[in-house]
Write a protein that binds this DNA or RNA. Structure first.
Length: 264
DNA sequence: TTCCAGGGTCCTA
DNA sequence: TAGGACCATGGA
């Protein structure tokens, strides 16, 4: 077990409950998740207690991002200022691109608890058994699954998207290589995959491919933008132009704030 | 029973 | 290019 004192802002609960990652569960005060086929246990009080080392934390939770600098650059008005103050310390996560892609294909027309359930089912059915839990299924494992087997995991009509996308990735599409491409080029590649439109592509780009300018546009974000900034035909373009190179952080603070506090 | 959820695809105008 | 119907599912 590692005990790590962080001097950088980091709020574990906000980060793991914000709807960007779906394989973490909280037992008491301890979060448990499987990352890179390893069970990670992590809790936060005045310090971080974790089964992983500081290098893992820095990479996975993007602690190498200068959060104060980023937040000050997007803190442009009262509407974004409130989420920043309330959710201060929330980080974007640097996920595995393949896991992120399948997760957000499952997210379409769905809600967070059900997405988690589907991902858990897929891991149990098609992931390699580990000492504690299951690995995320490989593209090859999902390629070998029948549509009926996928649907029994709760995927619904997304079964064929998962199967076809798995086939393309198993055939040699290197998702990680998209990190070296521009935002536009990487997005073009992702949007050729079945089940991937603008929104899913932007989530994959933001949460796994280091494209912090991505601005995923779902119903919550559309509601925020229209409510705070007036009628807008192209919400995604507005968000990117208004918030700039760290539009993805602005997007996630607005999204999570809207989800938690916007419906009260 | 109806509404809703981190949407995408296909068809039509 | 824009708008609308349709798609599975389960909790509220």
């Amino acid at each position: 077990m590692h005990y790590i004192e962080l001097e950088r802002p980091f709020h574990l609960d906000h980060t793991l409950t914000s709807g960007q990652v779906f394989r973490w569960h909280k037992n008491g005060n301890v979060w448990e998740g499987i990352v890179n086929d390893q069970l990670i246990q992590i809790s936060q009080k005045s310090t971080i207690t974790c089964t992983c080392d500081e290098q893992f934390l820095n990479n996975y939770f993007r602690l190498d991002d200068d959060l104060d600098l980023i937040l000050s650059s997007i803190d442009k008005d009262e509407h974004i200022h409130k989420p920043i103050k309330t959710l201060y310390g929330m980080r974007l996560i640097r996920q595995d691109p393949w896991e992120c892609l399948i997760s957000f294909i499952c997210s379409s027309f769905n809600n967070v608890p059900r997405i988690k359930l589907i991902i858990d089912n897929l891991c149990r059915e098609f992931g390699t058994p580990l000492q504690h839990g299951y690995a995320f299924p490989t593209p090859e494992a999902l390629t070998s699954a029948s549509l009926d087997q996928l649907r029994k995991c709760g995927t619904g009509y997304r079964d064929k998207y998962i199967a076809e996308t798995a086939q393309i990735v198993a055939s040699g599409l290197d998702l990680s290589s998209l990190k070296r491409k521009s935002y536009e080029t990487a997005k073009e590649v992702l949007m050729k995959l079945p089940g991937v439109g603008h929104k899913v592509a932007d989530c994959v780009l933001l949460f796994s491919l280091d494209k912090l300018e991505a601005f995923p546009c779902d119903v919550n974000i559309q509601k925020c933008i229209h409510q705070f900034y007036g009628p807008c035909a192209h919400v995604r373009k507005f968000g990117q132009q208004y918030f700039g190179e760290y539009a993805g952080y602005a997007n996630h603070y607005l999204y999570h704030y809207q989800r938690v506090y916007g419906k009260r």
